[in-house]
Computed example of a mutant assay.
Amino acid sequence: MDRFKIYSQSDIDQLVNGRYGETKLGERVQTYSDSSANTLVSTTELAKSKARFVLLGIPEDIGIRANLGIAGATTAWQPALKALMNIQSNHFLRGNEILVLGHFEIDEPDSSSVNALREKVAKIDDLVYPIIKAIVAAGKTPIVIGGGHNNCYPILKGTSLAKRQAIDVLNLDAHADLRTMEGRHSGNGFTYAFANNYLGNYFMYGLHQNYNNEAIMSQIGSNPKLTAVFFDDILKGADEKKLLSGMKASAGLEIDLDCIENVLSSASSPTGFSVNDIRKLILTCDKQFAYLHIAEGASMLLDGQESKSTAKLIAYLISDFIKTQKVNLKA
């Protein structure tokens, strides 16, 4: 049965590699205070925590398979959490800024047909958005490790409902994910978010000309709410300044790991941003974001490819984000 598993401190302790004379983030992070909770998350209880950032995982690849992609995104959450929990706690990042909430446990549908997978994604939407809504309503910033990029839709829905407004998004991605409303999958989350008025202005940075169809190109060219900078143009000198200046407050930050070259994901690419390009963008950005969503990464794909570095990369991106957002809050 689909559910949300709330973590206790003992769940975190099992991930920490302790060392005498050192303190790791996992020894400083907070967990949900209501020990009687099973799967229900209360805005009131979350608001009691002094942590500003709430970390959770959506380890599923049903949305990716519903978009005819390669399975494996289920494998990112646990290794990434372990990598993050073993970062050193120091004056740059203490760890008590983070509440580790838990992860979704999602059953496979009875059928592996595309239609069954897409129907299941719609059920995942309904499972995810109330948790995001509770976090945002408590005044916290969700940090979500996926999982397929289909989850941008329930994250946007939950954030929008909590803030009672449409949410702008900056998406670092090789793909626009604006495919048609043919049933829910990882390639049309932003389409559904637009259709239901959860998405305001949509800013895309790093799209690949080779992997966005003509219908999507036409949408970008005709809809003033869509602004894109293609990676092909970044190679010729284009940058993100125009995008960042156009975003309203409370924008969401989406990072699809397929935009970074040679990172294991459902649509890995030999060309794209370097890891340090993305780190620099996060570390130098002066925007306050409503949430961070890291999607499509994998430690192992169904076709046998493996990478131990994906988990550590996700940990770097999350720690960069928290450090920068802490500074921006004080500015």
Rank of each mutant, 00 (worst) to 15 (best):
R28F: 00
I64C: 04
K140E: 11
S10E: 15
A51M: 08
L40R: 08
S10T: 15
R52F: 00
A138G: 07
R52V: 01
P109L: 03
C259Q: 04
V128S: 09
P59E: 06
H175S: 04
Q305M: 10
N150I: 00
H175G: 02
I124D: 03
S218G: 00
F273I: 07
S269N: 13
T159N: 06
T23M: 08
A71K: 12
L313D: 09
Q9W: 04
D125R: 03
T31G: 02
A228V: 02
D173M: 06
L317F: 14
Y153R: 07
R52P: 00
K225H: 13
D110C: 00
E22V: 06
T44V: 14
L243S: 13
S307P: 10
D13Q: 12
S112D: 12
S36R: 13
G187Y: 01
L313E: 10
A295Q: 11
L257S: 08
S112E: 10
V275D: 09
Q209T: 12
K225D: 12
K236F: 05
I131M: 05
L46M: 10
V114L: 13
T39Q: 14
A80T: 13
L313W: 05
H293L: 12
L172I: 15
T74R: 15
V229R: 11
Q14A: 15
T74M: 05
G63P: 04
N171F: 01
L161T: 04
E105T: 10
E22G: 00
N196T: 14
L15M: 14
V229E: 04
G148A: 05
N328S: 08
A176G: 10
E214R: 09
A122Q: 11
V169C: 11
S8T: 15
G246F: 01
G187I: 01
S10P: 00
M204Q: 15
G272C: 07
A138V: 09
A311S: 15
L302H: 12
S49N: 11
I87M: 11
I62V: 14
K120A: 05
I64M: 05
S319Y: 01
I282K: 01
E105M: 11
D110V: 11
A47Q: 15
A331F: 03
D258I: 08
A315G: 11
H208C: 01
A116H: 05
I87V: 12
K140S: 06
T39Y: 12
Y192S: 08
T324F: 00
A193N: 06
I322G: 04
S36H: 12
N188M: 02
T43H: 01
L199C: 10
I64T: 13
S269C: 10
V100N: 03
N151R: 03
Y202T: 07
S269W: 03
V100S: 07
F231P: 07
